[in-house]
Design a protein around this nucleic acid. Structure first.
Lengths: 216, 216
DNA sequence: TAGATTGTTAATCGATTAACAATC
DNA sequence: TAGATTGTTAATCGATTAACAATC
């Protein structure tokens, strides 16, 4: 007789992670001002989901509440931040120093400097165009793409924003396969074949526009 | 005996609409070059879903294929474009002429001018800052927010991109309640309470970053 | 203790996948 | 006709909601 030992593949649905980010944001807003405890009901109302869903989502990661009382807002915020790795500084790079890349670079750097708990720090920007190399974006120099792999690996950077033209996106992500980059946010309107070990999310404005136009 | 006439509330799941936009993009790419017909299998492979899903999605809107043959690529592209309202020019405005607003304005205008079938046309930009009013973005003048309602209504514009700071986003969308705007793409990192009849989608980079950081 | 709210199990709902008769 | 592929129905899967015992 064969006993199969099933390793509980603790698979967390994507939607749960996304909602966790919403809970974190809501908790960051109430923490200081209101009472020290929040119920799943209150948190749910702020985020726009059901109380049962809040409890279910949190239950995937542990027991954070007290029966009859609710969740300690500060503690829950810290725990969710830990789960989402937002309790440490996350360095990232931007590849593609066009208008969108520069706008996102300035935006995130400003947030990092002004918001206490904002964890994402832009560390470097890259472009293939020699005319752009050397240009400074909010204090960060744009470097040539050929330096990318070395710099990313030296500084152990795991995250990249991809703001290159559609035609360049696939070749850039192929380059990233040789680096420590593990997560990529792709702004190019194209489906990328990701190298093994790299997770790609798409932030495609054209797709959002098409989606919205359906409701006109 | 009472006969209940059930109006088939043709509720289309959000994910289906999103995939429709992906099918449209894939079809636009193959149309000219390859064979005139595509099977659900081929289309599925290009988009990264199953063939059954392609057929199921399309079946929600009609019968577009021929058994044993597949779908005529050009015809299917036109039909999906019609469903997504991408068969006509969709005028939209950008509210908030900061860096992100300007970058998105230039990006979409360039696409509109260079891509044959790109349906989204930026018609006006607005800001509350008098220093920004009058400035031109790729030929489009930035106007004061106080002119927004009048211009949007005169030109029957239904779509808006919201690129104002988080603190201003809710008051702007309240203003939109008085206009013909029906769909809003919100870039501010905050949940908006939409006026009746307005559909809001969020394009929140911070949320995407949190989501991705989970996988580091 | 009494009231409230969690964590969890069971019921429901909806979306995806598989399968196949219809038919080009 | 024979082979292929659709449109659709049934089976599966997974996520959401409801309900409630446990307990603060």
């Amino acid at each position: 007789m064969l006993e199969v030992i099933c390793i509980k593949e603790s698979r967390v649905p994507e939607v749960v992670i996304r909602r966790l980010a919403l809970y974190l944001r809501a908790l960051s807003q109430i923490d200081a001002s209101e009472s020290a405890f929040v119920s799943s009901q209150e948190l749910a109302a702020k985020v726009g989901v059901t109380a049962a869903q809040v409890r279910k989502d949190l239950a995937m990661f542990g027991e954070f509440g007290k029966q009859g009382v609710g969740y300690h807002a500060g503690f829950l915020r810290e725990e969710i931040a830990r789960i989402l790795k937002a309790d440490r500084t996350i360095e990232f790079v931007i590849i593609g120093a066009g208008e969108l890349g520069i706008a996102l670079g300035r935006y995130t750097l400003r947030k990092y400097e002004s918001e206490q708990a904002y964890p994402f720090m832009l560390t470097a920007m890259f472009d293939i165009d020699p005319a752009k190399v050397g240009h400074k974006v909010a204090g960060i120099s744009v470097r040539h793409i050929s330096e990318m792999a070395r710099i990313v690996n030296e500084r152990c950077i795991g995250m990249a924003l991809l703001t290159v033209p559609e035609s360049a996106a696939q070749s850039v992500i192929d380059l990233l396969g040789e680096t420590r980059i593990k997560a990529v946010l792709n702004f190019a309107p194209t489906r990328l074949v990701a190298p093994r070990g790299i997770r790609v999310h798409n932030a495609d404005v054209s797709l959002d526009l098409h989606h919205l136009a359906f409701f006109l």
